[in-house]
Write a protein that binds this DNA or RNA. Structure first.
Lengths: 149, 149
DNA sequence: AAAAATTCCCAGTGGTATAATAGGGTAAAA
DNA sequence: TTTTACCCTATTATACCACTGGGAATTTTT
């Protein structure tokens, strides 16, 4: 039950851009240097994030991508679902067109629905800002640990 | 982020056996008739469930499989993990051998750990008996709905 | 003793999705 | 003129998934 690489990368990219400060325009090349993701692969991901309205772009030299909203206004769940399509643990929950023949009398459907809810509730509980705060906390810890060496 | 067919089938098979009553020995052919899963495919699944110590087998005519414990003593999570290996949403959490190079300074690891916990807590919260009770409730509803027609 | 039903076990197969890379080109802005 | 985004279309490699096949071993039934 894995999140795809694209989904993980998308989150890291969004966080990377957010980390550079409010309104900062960041090129894929820059992100590539920090995150070890090829520019070509990033293109595929960033395209989906732009179309979802999460990023706006600036062309030309010193161009790149910029967050449209403030970090606190992006739920992590939104980002993941934009890339993954859905986080549903079974296809039956993906939409009516995916309902299987057994749905009406399925003994396990309610269980899966509950899991779906728990997952979505969790990922929607955090925003980019929350992850940003975690980063700063981590850095602070590393710094104080460094001093004591 | 999908549970595999094997995982879903495993749960349905365990539930099917449980439904036939305590100590009942059920053949794959019987399960196949009710659950629409080929005997051949079930073999693979049931093998893993047996090796995990969840089922015991009886060979020969009128043979089949039997629950080792009472339904209330199987967490759904145990069953799923026995088949899926792990429910971790990212490989980094699957074990030390899967840690990526970025783990030490990963900005998103804590987020994924939290998701992993939430998922496992949910699936371990339910037992086969709980799903069994749900079934009976469903049946009762269907019956009363049938009467009113 | 023979036949049938079943579990047990290994091997294979076809399809699909994933994770990427490669390469082409156009458009816009510094 | 350069740098970047934008937008295609592949192609690859590989891994996993869902499922099938062929048999051997074991037990019950006939």
């Amino acid at each position: 039950m894995k999140i795809s690489t694209k989904g993980r990368y998308a989150l890291r990219m969004m966080l990377d851009i957010a980390k550079q400060g409010e309104g900062a325009v960041i090129s894929l090349k820059d992100i590539s240097g920090r995150q070890d993701i090829s520019v070509k692969y990033q293109e595929q991901i960033v395209m989906q994030l732009s179309r979802a309205g999460f990023l706006s772009s600036v062309r030309g030299p010193s161009g790149g991508y910029r967050l449209v909203r403030k970090p606190a206004e992006y739920k992590v769940g939104e980002i993941l679902r934009a890339i993954e399509g859905s986080l549903a643990p079974v296809a039956c929950l993906d939409g009516e067109e995916n309902h299987c023949a057994r749905c009406d009398y399925c003994e396990t459907l309610a269980f899966w629905q509950g899991l779906d809810e728990v997952i979505n509730r969790y990922v929607d509980q955090f925003t980019l800002q929350d992850l940003l705060d975690d980063c700063k906390e981590q850095e602070a810890k590393r710094e104080s640990a460094g001093k004591s060496q």
